[in-house]
């Protein structure tokens, strides 16, 4: 299969690891994730000029603002992220939280805010979000306990809390843990999701 401007899909995967965005007006993408494009596209860093008007509503995150860039113009843009699996999420009146390092692009119609859990971004509203994952994304209904490294995000759920395994706590209290220099692995500490909603899990640790 040889792609050209016409045969490239509009907003769809080329394979598991690459995604083609049809840029019509604006799109917010993460720096360094563009691998190729056709057409007349301009890339502008946040906070340069009038683009702020576009993003002041949608990009409400001082901490991660620098990770993003606004693409304007008309063209087809291919995203890739270290050969990780890429998926697109069509959000409708949504409340979705995603690991910040996994966000590749989103439409300016969404509102992006920092989650209370460090390292995560929450997306509110209606629009498109593109994120990568290590292995295909698995959807799991809460309640469940998940290795923090394998989490991609969660939808319509309250922020999770940490659950420590009993053996681990016992080790810590008996000071054996500190002596042995215990490293926390997924078996010892998990994110505990309660309530009703969906958890997005990568098939492997980050």
């Amino acid at each position: 299969m040889i792609y050209n401007y016409e045969t490239l899909p509009d907003n769809d995967n080329l394979n598991n690891y690459s995604y083609c965005l049809n840029v019509v007006n604006q799109m917010i993408i993460t720096k360094g994730k563009m691998i190729a494009y056709y057409g007349m596209l301009r890339f502008e860093a946040i906070g340069v000029n009038l683009l702020d008007l576009i993003v002041q509503e949608s990009l409400n995150t001082p901490r991660y603002g620098n990770n993003f860039v606004v693409v304007t113009g008309q063209g087809k843009l291919v995203l890739g992220d270290r050969a990780c699996e890429i998926a697109s999420y069509d959000l409708e009146d949504a409340h979705l939280t995603v690991k910040a390092s996994r966000v590749l692009a989103f439409s300016p119609s969404l509102i992006c805010q920092e989650s209370t859990l460090a390292g995560y971004l929450t997306f509110l509203g209606t629009g498109q979000l593109i994120a990568s994952s290590n292995g295909p994304v698995v959807f799991l209904e809460a309640p469940a306990k998940v290795d923090p490294d394998a989490i991609l995000g969660w939808a319509d759920l309250p922020s999770p809390s940490y659950h420590y395994d009993y053996e681990y706590i016992k080790d810590v209290f008996s000071a054996v843990g500190s002596l042995a220099g215990l490293k926390k692995s997924g078996e010892e500490r998990q994110l505990n999701f309660t309530g009703k909603g969906t958890i997005l899990i990568q098939s492997s640790e980050q």
Partner: peptide
């Protein structure tokens, strides 16, 4: 390649730009 190779046509209608690292 990592993730397989993707082939793109260059035909003089639209310029085609790529990240040299990819």
């Amino acid at each position: 390649s990592q993730g397989g190779i993707l082939a793109f046509e260059v035909n003089g209608i639209y310029p085609f730009c790529v990240d040299p690292d990819a």
